[in-house]
Design a binder for these strands. Structure first.
Lengths: 287, 287
DNA sequence: TTACCTTTATACTGCCGGTATAAACCTGAT
DNA sequence: ATCAGGTTTATACCGGCAGTATAAAGGTAA
């Protein structure tokens, strides 16, 4: 992505943190980042698009770093999980993510709403999958409920703890407390054999096969990008577009993706066997 | 309150439910309720003021009915508590209270934000006080945490249950499930002797003495109003104003309240010994 | 009839997000 | 050096928004 575009996102983020999304006008962003209106609408098709770009960047980095914390560690170790949660809560706080989120979650822009809902669902799924590792498969029936309740507990605890102890208070005790409570809740629900949402519900939210497709796509594209020098901007942009359109957009535009794949096949800089893998992966996805 | 004003609130509420607060323009409200702009701004000083009036009416009725459910019942009976929660969740759903709430909670209007925060705090306090009755004084140190977590669990469970089972699904199982989990959580926190927020924190949010003042004020004003016929609109409005200004406004305007008290003292229709009580109550409050 | 309040209709202000456009600027190929 | 194609800028413009201003009309009670 363009350096200058990145700079605009950064400046806008700063303004959003200072005064919120709604009360930052496009004019403010133009003046603060020193670009003209024309350039702005050349980069982003609307103010909401800019916000989506910002969220996307923040999410991507947060999820990557959070997952890196687990590398080489025991996935059933509660303390690692606590560290992952702590990291995410601190990132949220630093970037005023929750506030921004709340501010625009109820909005008229369907695209924006869809994007935010996807983010929430991704977080829920991540917690659920981690719970599977932490509590074991035998607790599986109670873990979707657990993940839902955990996020509720966590956010409420963080919110009121911050009110009571100031926004700069260390968040770790809250995470520790919330996770500790969670252990008992899962145990309790499993003993009482009470279930509110069946984990199969998740297949509804994340159509089956998609998870596999997701990881395959990401790794194939990463492979292709790895063999490219920085100068192959076009190819990189094309690959990013395909990833984005398939994973983040409400409805992937098949014709667009196919066109892009076509030009990828014609690119001598790319490893064509990997391109073929990508091609096959995507055509399987569409049928 | 004026019948016509009430009607405007009702019509606006309908529009807000249908299309949300932000995307309902004042022009829409004018057309839908058949009044002119001048009249609107005669009733409400802004669109946000109208929303506050709407919330106030809804809260007042909801809290009253919820408290009535407890009259003559055993306050330590869990099933009554579940019914109270169910009632509130259903009212929320019917009036799209949560959606409206989220939509405006992050807003630039300090008055509106303050009002909403007060509402949340009142709810938290109510749950805490009910938990004291339900779980007993010996669990007191863990009950503020409990109330905070309960609201988090409840809202998240309701939200995802509604997503999974449709908005029209019966909410009672969710309430039952959430309360059942709560019992264990309180037990667990008390055994582990873990505490995140001390209940004394609540004195900070609700300055001590205020609770007593609150109930005294409400009952004294109710007493005064009981002896008035419907025709004494002025006196009723004055009493309502005093109540509102003292309980709901960010900073009570002492000079205004004293002026109103002055006219109340001059009103032959009012029982002057009760007025004196009111007077004393309020002057004690201010020093 | 008079006096006073409420309501109406309508025009206006200033700000917003977003569009349109012509001129200026840059950059790389010939 | 010149030229073409793109990006960027400055600026004017649009329609819609919340909120203000005001003059006329309507209602009501003394």
């Amino acid at each position: 992505m363009n350096d200058r575009k990145q700079h605009v996102i950064k400046m806008a983020h700063q303004l959003f943190i200072e005064r919120g999304f709604q009360s930052t006008s496009i004019q403010d962003i133009l003046e603060f980042s020193g670009i003209s209106k024309g350039t702005f609408y050349n980069y982003f098709s609307s103010k909401n698009e800019l916000l989506i770009a910002l969220f996307k960047a923040l999410y991507e980095s947060m999820e990557r770093k959070r997952d890196e914390l687990l590398i080489g560690q025991d996935p059933s170790d509660l303390t690692i999980f606590k560290k992952q949660i702590e990291f995410q809560m601190n990132t949220n706080k630093k970037n005023k993510l929750i506030t921004l989120f709340e501010e625009v979650f109820v909005s008229n822009d369907e695209d924006l709403k869809h994007f935010l809902r996807e983010g929430q669902k991704r977080m829920l799924r991540w917690v659920y999958n981690r719970f599977l590792e932490l509590f074991g498969e035998e607790k599986q029936p109670y873990l979707l409920d657990g993940a839902i309740m955990f996020l509720g507990i966590l956010h409420h605890n963080v919110k009121y703890y911050s009110i009571a102890n100031g926004a700069s208070a260390d968040i770790y005790p809250v995470v520790e407390y919330s996770v500790d409570r969670m252990v008992t809740i899962v145990e309790d629900a499993s003993i009482a054999n009470q279930q509110l949402n069946k984990p199969e519900q998740m297949d509804d939210w994340f159509p089956e096969g998609n998870q596999l497709f997701h990881s395959n796509l990401v790794s194939t594209i990463r492979l292709l990008k790895a063999n490219l020098s920085e100068s192959n901007n076009e190819a990189i942009e094309r690959l990013d577009f395909v990833k984005d359109e398939l994973l983040h957009s409400k409805k992937s535009r098949k014709f667009l993706i196919e066109s892009v794949l076509c030009s990828l096949r014609d690119d001598p800089k790319l490893d064509q066997t990997t391109v073929n893998q990508l091609d096959e992966l995507i055509s399987n996805y569409f049928k």
